[in-house]
Each structure stands twice: as structure tokens, then as C-alpha cells.
Lab assay of single mutants.
Amino acid sequence: MPSETPQAEVGPTGCPHRSGPHSAKGSLEKGSPEDKEAKEPLWIRPDAPSRCTWQLGRPASESPHHHTAPAKSPKILPDILKKIGDTPMVRINKIGKKFGLKCELLAKCEFFNAGGSVKDRISLRMIEDAERDGTLKPGDTIIEPTSGNTGIGLALAAAVRGYRCIIVMPEKMSSEKVDVLRALGAEIVRTPTNARFDSPESHVGVAWRLKNEIPNSHILDQYRNASNPLAHYDTTADEILQQCDGKLDMLVASVGTGGTITGIARKLKEKCPGCRIIGVDPEGSILAEPEELNQTEQTTYEVEGIGYDFIPTVLDRTVVDKWFKSNDEEAFTFARMLIAQEGLLCGGSAGSTVAVAVKAAQELQEGQRCVVILPDSVRNYMTKFLSDRWMLQKGFLKEEDLTEKKPWWWHLRVQELGLSAPLTVLPTITCGHTIEILREKGFDQAPVVDEAGVILGMVTLGNMLSSLLAGKVQPSDQVGKVIYKQFKQIRLTDTLGRLSHILEMDHFALVV
């Protein structure tokens, strides 16, 4: 994948999101292997301009796509893939009243899908469409860049269908997702969380590099694949309309690839034109409109599966009536509230959605109805927002919020430890010299600072030695090549209790 991002070429006709291997024109390309080798690009942008032909009021008969309808489940399912879809609609009884809503608040519980998330729908649909058009064949390999849930859905379907599955996901995604993927037989590649989507090191860039190296491999490409919004247009939206008897006044959905909100909203605009569509985008993402909503100094966020630093091709923002931004604290607070007060075992993005819903639905009156999409299960986040310690460490809970008995030293300040200034190293000294210094002084790690004293990161003896043994660096290389740029900081005025929580999850903390 090139470091400079080429513009994806656009073909003359058809839909841009065809499933299957992508040609340089962004659509299915038939021909000899030699032709494909000559024409197939190194990668295709996940934010390529959409060429979708959908228009409100256009006859369904003019759609270029294969459409399906929700099917009634048999008493005995032939395999677990038949437990994807037909998820329950559940009334939220307490939270709406707590925040003064007059309307009825309903939750579409997508964590009841077989793999635990709304992404099971698009995973199965992308595979079925690729099999139907002859792209996927027995023994082929599926590769997908994902925040985890699409990966789980694909790995689940691949396990049943017999495909090899490789999932490329950023490091910030939970260990629970990784464990589930491994249990399903998927191979996992992790990428830096802070890598831009168009960087060769991003999950998108690495996935395309693997595709170019592995024979008979395919990126189904949830960011561009029409099967993504079509899955929701054909099934999720129809289920909502049936469950609500066609009567709903507002739908609120958090947005990642945009397939969920695009597919549902398009069908609702056709069948229930008075329904307002509300999009939820986390602070630090750029999906919301108008652009002024996205202006923030924050560039990272903890909530998973929603928000991006690019506009995915499948996201149709014209069908969203209003956007709201959400933050991590309210997302996790509301997710825990949904679990504790409503018994809905949902993930953090569901918290984002409901946090926005109780604001947006203030305009609705008694007798009206708001539906929220709860995308995934708490299963993926047992060591994250479900953990009091994690919430404390991230600053989303305060010590006084917890009532468990603490040891005698818990409320003492870090400054009472009488710490001395640490050994520091410059980023320009060599790895070999740094190892000598650390061994001589008896230290395992040291902060790396520039000549102005600005902290650049941390270097550890173990990481340097393993990097040297693996051949990633040489003793003569500058130590700046092996620094940890993500590390926890703590102030002298913070409590030892807070430091204790940090050290339970990290090997060190830097006192500043």
C-alpha cells in the first residue's frame, strides 16, 4: 500500500459497493488471473465517493441489488447463522422517566444476534452475496479491517462455511474481542490505534497488504460494500417497522461504517417519512454534520465500534436529520445504567446512543415513540467499562463513588512517597548505550525526554532486548525507535489509591 493515498477510480455505471474482489474501477472485475494482476490496485480507499443510485421515491424494481426479506425461524435451526436477525424490541421503562421523557422509549437489542452484535447481519450478508456472485469459493481466505464486531461476525460465518479468516484490528480494541476471535479460529493482526486510516500501518493498510500477498484472499470491505446497508434496509428496518406496527417518530443510532443508519433510515424514509433520524458520533470522530460539531482538541476516545477519521463510502449522511456528539463518560455511564436499571447487557456504544436519545427525544410528546439501536453486548468489555477499576483509572468514576473498604494508605498523596527525580535518556542515544546505562543503574525503564525536557515516551529494558533479539533494531539504532509513546501519567497530588489502580493494569506510571 502506498504512503500517498491515490484516488480510487470510478467506473461508468453500476453501484460502487459490489461485493467481491475490487477492480481499479471499484466494481467486480472478471477475466484471467493475468488481467486481474495487471488491473487490481494495491488498495482502494474506504472513503471513495459513493456511486449508489438510491433515491427517495425511486421504484424498488430499479435497484441493481439482490434483495432479501426477513424469514421466520424454524423450530430447529440448521446452523447458528440462522440465529442472525429477528432481534427483540424491548421497552426501556426507567431511564426515559428518569430523564423526563414523555414518549415511549424502545430498544432494538442487536446483541441477541448469534455473534453478539449488529455486525453479524452485514457479515453474513457480505459472505452470502460474495458466494452468490462467485467471488468467494471453498478454501478462500477472508481478510477484514475491523474494530472487532464485524470480525467476530465474519469469523463466526467463516467457521460454519469453512473459510480461512484473518482479522486486522487496532490495538485499542478489547482483549475479549481478541479472545472470541481466536476461539472462532480467526487469525488476528493488531495495528497502532493512532495510525491514520490511509497510513500503511493502519488496520485498513495492513489488511490490503495481506490481501496482495495471500492468494485467493478477499477483503469484503464493510466500508464500501453495498451488502452492509442492504442488510439493514432489507431486514433490520423491516423488523423495526413490523415490531412497531409502522408507528415510530424517531430513530437514534450510533454511527461507525454508517451501514446501520443508512440502511434503516432509507427504508424508514420510504415507509415512515415523518420519522426523524438521529445520528450519534463520538467526540474525536469526524462523521457528524455540520462540520463545526467535529471541532475539538480530542483525537482519541475509548468507546469502541463507532466514529472514524474518514467518511466511509457506505455512509449516506443525507438521510440523517440531526447529529449529536457523545463523550466517553456519558457513554459508559449510560451503558452501566442500562445494565443495572433495565437488565440490558449492552456495550458502550449503546450507552452513547441512549445518552443522546434522552436529549433528542425531549421534543417528542406522549403517545409518540423513539427507537434506539443497541449494537453489541457487554461480553466484549468485561475488563473495560464493566470494571470499576478501569473506570477509575480512566477518570470516568471517582473514588467516592465506590463504597468498598480501602487499605490505610489509600488516600495518601503520591508526594508522600518522597520520590527522587528519575533517570532520563535522550532519544538520540543508541539502544546499546541505553541498555548499558539501565543495567549500570539497576533500572528496568526510563523516560525519554528531548533537550527541552519534554517527555516523549518510555523505554524499557525488556522491550529493547526483545527488539534486538527479533532483529527489529540494532544496538547502533537510536533509542527513539523503541519508545512507548502511550503511558499513564500521575500527579504528586493524586492518591496512592489512584496509582494502585493504574499499576494493576500497566507496568509503570510516570509522575509529573
Rank of each mutant, 00 (worst) to 15 (best):
Pro64Val: 03
Glu187Ser: 09
Val178Thr: 04
Ile264Gly: 03
Glu40Leu: 15
Pro273Asp: 08
Glu110His: 02
Leu220Met: 03
Gly134Val: 04
Asp238Asn: 11
Leu181Glu: 01
Leu28Thr: 10
Gly20Trp: 09
Asp47Glu: 07
Lys98Thr: 10
Ala130Cys: 06
Arg182Ser: 07
Gly96Pro: 11
Glu40His: 11
Pro215Tyr: 08
Leu268Phe: 07
Asp221Lys: 02
Gly31Asp: 15
Arg190Ile: 04
Val118Arg: 03
Asp140His: 05
Glu104Pro: 05
Gly162Thr: 04
Arg51Val: 06
Asp198Val: 03
Val206Lys: 05
Gly14Lys: 09
Ser227Ile: 07
Arg51Ile: 06
Cys272Gly: 09
Gln243Cys: 06
Gln55Leu: 06
Pro74Asn: 06
Gly263Leu: 00
Ser202Lys: 06
Ser254Cys: 15
Lys75Met: 15
Glu270Ile: 05
Cys165Lys: 01
Ser19Gln: 09
Asn149Pro: 05
Ile219Pro: 00
Asp221Tyr: 14
Gly31Ile: 04
Lys271Ser: 15
Ser199Tyr: 06
Glu239Tyr: 00
Leu81Asn: 07
Gly256Val: 00
Val160Ala: 10
Val180Ile: 04
Lys30Tyr: 10
Gly134Asn: 07
Leu251Ser: 03
Ile152Tyr: 01
Asp35Ile: 11
Lys72Val: 09
Arg164Thr: 07
Lys271Cys: 12
Asn113Asp: 06
Met89Val: 10
Ser227His: 10
Pro192Gly: 08
Ser254Phe: 04
Lys137Tyr: 07
Ser32Phe: 06
Tyr233Asn: 05
Val178Phe: 15
Thr236Lys: 06
Gly57Glu: 13
Ser174Ile: 00
Ile80His: 01
Tyr223Gly: 01
Ala24Lys: 05
Gly205Tyr: 08
Gly258Met: 04
Asn93Trp: 01
Cys165Tyr: 02
Lys269Arg: 12
Tyr223Val: 00
Ala158Leu: 02
Ile84Ala: 09
Ile80Pro: 02
Cys103Trp: 06
Pro41Arg: 05
Met89Leu: 12
Asp198Asn: 10
Ile264Val: 13
Ser117Met: 04
Pro145Asp: 04
Met173Ile: 10
Glu40Pro: 11
Ile142Glu: 00
Gln55Lys: 13
Arg18Ala: 14
Pro16Val: 03
Leu268Ala: 04
Ser3Arg: 15
Ser123Glu: 08
Pro273Leu: 11
Thr53Cys: 07
Ala38Lys: 11
Ile240His: 00
Val255His: 06
Leu136Thr: 08
Leu230Gln: 08
Glu187Trp: 09
Ile240Glu: 01
Thr5Leu: 03
Ile264Lys: 04
Ile122Arg: 02
Thr68Leu: 14
Pro215Gln: 08
Gly148Glu: 06
Asn212Pro: 04
Pro138Tyr: 15
Glu62Gln: 14
His65Met: 13
Asp140Val: 09
Pro49Val: 09
Gly185Tyr: 00
Ala237Asn: 01
Gly139Gln: 03
Ser27Cys: 13
Leu230Ile: 11
Phe111Glu: 04
Asp133Gln: 11
Asn149His: 03
Ala253Arg: 04
Val10Asn: 12
Ser227Tyr: 12
His17Ser: 08
Leu230Thr: 09
Val178His: 00
Thr262Val: 09
Met250Cys: 01
Gly274Ser: 05
Pro74Met: 13
Ala114Ile: 06
Leu56Ser: 10
Cys109Glu: 01
His17Ala: 04
Ser202Val: 02
Thr193Ala: 11
Glu176Cys: 03
Ala157Asp: 11
Pro200Lys: 08
Phe99Arg: 04
Ile240Pro: 02
Cys244Met: 07
Cys275Glu: 00
Ala155Leu: 02
Ser117Asn: 06
His67Ala: 08
Lys271Pro: 05
Lys108Met: 01
His17Tyr: 14
Lys94Thr: 15
Pro2Arg: 13
Glu187Met: 04
Gly246Thr: 15
Thr262Phe: 01
His232Phe: 00
Leu101Asp: 01
Asp198Thr: 07
Tyr233Lys: 04
Arg161Tyr: 10
Asp140Cys: 07
Glu213Met: 15
Asp245Asn: 12
Met173Ala: 05
Ala60Val: 11
His218Glu: 07
Thr150Val: 02
Ala107Glu: 07
Ala237Glu: 07
Asp179Glu: 09
Gln242Phe: 09
Pro170Tyr: 04
Asp198Glu: 09
Asn216Tyr: 08
Pro138Glu: 08
Thr53Gln: 10
Asn225Met: 00
Gly258Ser: 02
Lys83Ala: 10
Asp129Gly: 03
Met169Val: 07
Cys275Arg: 00
Thr262Ile: 00
Thr236Met: 09
Gly96Trp: 11
Ala155Tyr: 02
Glu201Tyr: 09
Arg182Asn: 04
Asp234Gly: 08
Arg209Phe: 06
Leu241Gly: 08
Leu56Asn: 12
Ser174Asp: 01
Pro41Gln: 11
Ile166Val: 15
Ser73Asp: 05
Gly274Tyr: 12
Glu29Cys: 11
Leu136Trp: 07
His218Leu: 05
Val160Thr: 05
Phe99Asn: 09
Gly162Arg: 07
Ser227Asp: 10
Glu270Ser: 05
Val189Cys: 08
Arg196Met: 10
Ser61Cys: 14
Val178Met: 10
Asp179Gln: 02
Asp249Gln: 07
Gly153Asn: 02
Glu104Met: 04
Gly57Cys: 12
Lys83Thr: 10
Ala158Pro: 02
Ser123Gln: 08
Ile127Gly: 02
Ser19Tyr: 09
Thr262Ser: 14
Ile188Lys: 04
Leu77Ser: 04
His66Glu: 05
Ser217Thr: 09
His17Phe: 07
Ala157Met: 08
Arg125Tyr: 08
His218Arg: 15
Arg51Gly: 09
Asp129Leu: 05
Ala253Asn: 08
Lys25Asn: 15
Lys102His: 09
Ser19His: 09
Arg266Cys: 02
Leu154Asp: 01
Asp245Cys: 14
Lys267Ser: 02
Asp120Thr: 07
Lys247Asn: 15
Arg121Asp: 02
Ile95His: 02
Ser73Val: 13
Cys244Glu: 01
Lys247Leu: 11
Lys271Met: 11
Lys119Ala: 05
Lys39His: 05
Ile92Leu: 05
Asp47Met: 04
Leu220Trp: 03
Cys244Phe: 04
Cys109Val: 11
Trp43Ile: 08
Pro170Arg: 01
Pro16Trp: 05
Gly258Val: 00
Gly57Val: 11
Asn93Lys: 08
Gln243Phe: 06
Arg266Asn: 05
Ile152Leu: 03
Ala38Tyr: 09
Ala107Asp: 08
Lys97Thr: 06
Tyr223Trp: 01
Arg209Lys: 13
Leu210His: 03
Pro16Thr: 08
Thr87Pro: 00
Gly11Arg: 10
Pro192Val: 07
Cys165Trp: 01
Pro138Ala: 06
Arg276Ser: 05
Asp234Ala: 09
Gly26Pro: 06
Gly139His: 14
Leu105Ser: 04
Lys177Tyr: 00
Thr87Tyr: 00
Leu268Trp: 01
Glu40Tyr: 10
Ile76Ala: 09
Gly246Ser: 07
Ala24Arg: 11
Ser123Thr: 06
Glu62Ala: 13
Asn212Phe: 10
Lys269Tyr: 02
Asp249Lys: 14
Arg91Asp: 08
Gly259Ser: 02
Glu176Ser: 07
Pro33Phe: 04
Glu40Cys: 04
Pro2Leu: 14
Pro88Gly: 06
His22Cys: 14
Glu144Ala: 02
Ala107Arg: 02
Ser32Ile: 08
Gly100Arg: 03
Arg190Met: 05
Pro46Cys: 04
Leu181Thr: 00
Thr13Tyr: 05
Val118His: 11
Ile127Asp: 06
Val204Trp: 06
Gly116Arg: 13
Ala231Phe: 03
Arg164Ile: 04
Ala71Gly: 14
Ser23Glu: 12
Ser73Asn: 14
Val168Asn: 04
Pro12Asp: 04
Ile219Phe: 03
Val255Arg: 02
Ala8Thr: 10
Leu101Tyr: 04
Lys119Cys: 00
Leu105Ala: 06
Lys211Asp: 06
Gln55Tyr: 10
Phe112Gln: 06
Val10Cys: 13
Leu101Thr: 04
Pro200Val: 08
Ala114Asn: 05
Lys102Trp: 04
Ala71Cys: 04
Ala48Phe: 09
Met126Arg: 06
Gly258Phe: 00
Asn225Phe: 01
Leu241Pro: 02
Leu248Ala: 06
Pro41Glu: 11
Asn228Gly: 00
Ile152Gly: 00
Ser32Val: 09
Arg209Cys: 08
Gln222Pro: 01
Met169Leu: 14
Lys94Val: 06
Met173Lys: 08
Ile95Lys: 00
Ile166Phe: 07
Leu220Arg: 02
Asp179Ser: 08
Pro64Ile: 13
Glu144Leu: 02
Gly31Pro: 10
Asp35Gly: 14
Ile214Trp: 02
Thr191Asn: 05
Thr68Ala: 15
Ser254Ile: 03
Ile143Glu: 00
Pro33Asn: 10
Ser202Tyr: 04
Asp79Trp: 06
Ala159Arg: 13
Glu37Gly: 12
Arg18His: 15
Leu81Cys: 07
His66Asn: 08
Gly26Asn: 10
Asp140Leu: 04
Gly14Cys: 06
Tyr163Ile: 04
Met89Asn: 03
Gly139Lys: 01
Glu176Trp: 00
Gly96Met: 10
Arg91Ile: 06
Arg58Asn: 09
Gly256Phe: 00
Ile92Asp: 00
Val180His: 04
Gly115Asn: 08
Ala69Gln: 10
Leu105Phe: 13
Pro200Leu: 11
Ile166Lys: 08
Gly139Cys: 10
Asp238Arg: 12
Gly115Val: 06
